[in-house]
């Protein structure tokens, strides 16, 4: 599998560390942490995921990927999304 890094270009999957579902947002108060930590999307289909380009530019990126076909639809820096 080749992951497109927005900075480095297309790279082999083994350069990356996988974190998973990019949708949970860290709660601000006391509530919602169980859901944040333990309930992640496990979609059969396109997911937004966090990957870390550990052996490249050291950026967290958000990849759109189909979990049934492994097709990758695109990627952006995770930080840009959060802004």
């Amino acid at each position: 599998m080749r992951i497109p890094c927005p900075y480095c270009g297309e790279r082999d999957v083994q350069e990356f560390v996988y974190r998973g579902d990019a949708s949970p947002v860290r709660p601000l108060g006391e509530d919602g942490f169980y859901e944040y930590v333990y309930l992640r999307r496990n979609s059969a289909g396109v997911m937004r995921e966090h990957w870390y380009h550990a052996q490249g530019c050291r950026n967290w990126i958000e990849v759109q990927r189909n979990t049934q076909t492994h097709e990758i639809l695109g990627s952006v820096f995770a930080r840009r999304v959060a802004l």
Partner: peptide, 10 residues
């Protein structure tokens, strides 16, 4: 190491 329903790896 990544979410998958594809029954095959890399």
């Amino acid at each position: 190491g990544y979410n998958s329903y594809a029954s095959r790896g890399n």
